[in-house]
């Protein structure tokens, strides 16, 4: 008798995967890139922790999340960046249409504080972008964040070091980010609930900056009072 009770209680859980349906009914947030939505079966999972593991900094790992940050700020909700590795550059964020007053940057002093802030922000409905930096997060810590995200039905993003790729993680989605050439972001799904890992996607981060700006086409704005000077001997 007891066994059937356990089974029926398990079946009522939303996250129990049954062989019949190959896909869980999940709620997702659009990533802003159609091909990525397709890869992630709809978009970024809400009510779950997403772990992003960039191989290097500067390959476009944060640009990937700008659409969702913009959406959050336009709906007047708080977006909290916990321990970003560098200073976010305000003009770039403003140009991307993000309301700066809805952005909060928090610097923690120790791992306990880091974890507390992360959990509080998820539970209070803010969009969390956290950078774990050099600190080593235990599985239980990550599980806390995952549970907080599940409880509050919020998406939460964690940038972890690539060194933790082999460690187990409770995150619903783990994405490895790499790049071989400029503006080509290579995404590899390392873990996604309801899907086998290993899928790969080349994402073209379509920036104006990919085109080389000819010198005579440079905007002659206020910054160019002195006119443009050719970049001689610059090594390209």
């Amino acid at each position: 008798m007891a066994n059937t009770e356990i089974i029926s209680s398990l079946l009522t859980r939303q996250d129990t995967w049954r062989g019949r349906n190959l896909r869980l009914p999940r709620r997702t947030l659009g990533t802003g890139h159609n091909s990525l939505d397709l890869l992630l079966q709809g978009g970024w999972p809400t009510a779950a922790l997403t772990e992003l593991l960039p191989r290097r900094l500067g390959i476009g790992e944060l640009s990937l999340l700008l659409p969702i940050v913009k959406e959050q700020s336009s709906s007047n909700q708080l977006c909290l960046w916990l321990d970003p590795p560098y200073q976010p550059y305000a003009p770039r964020l403003a140009a991307a249409g993000i309301a700066l007053d809805r952005l909060l940057i928090v610097r923690s002093k120790n791992p306990t504080e880091w974890l507390w802030v992360a959990e509080q922000s998820i539970r209070n409905g803010a969009l969390l972008l956290a950078w774990s930096g050099e600190q080593h997060l235990r599985y239980t810590d990550l599980r806390k964040l995952q549970l907080a995200a599940a409880d509050s039905s919020r998406a939460a993003f964690l940038f972890s070091s690539i060194k933790t790729l082999t460690d187990p993680s409770p995150a619903a989605l783990r994405l490895e980010l790499d790049s071989q050439s400029v503006n080509q972001l290579q995404l590899t799904v390392r873990k996604l609930r309801g899907k086998a890992p290993g899928d790969r996607l080349e994402l073209n981060l379509d920036h104006n900056s990919t085109q080389r700006i000819a010198l005579n086409q440079l905007p002659t704005g206020q910054h160019h009072a002195y006119g443009s000077i050719s970049a001689s001997g610059s090594g390209n």
Partner: peptide, 29 residues
Amino acid sequence: EQTDNRSSSDLIDSLNARLGAEALFQPVL
């Protein structure tokens, strides 16, 4: 929608109380 706004200010207040005002920043243009 108001509850969302409230909870975000609740969050700022509790962060302020626990970490101190010197740990919270905002980008300024």
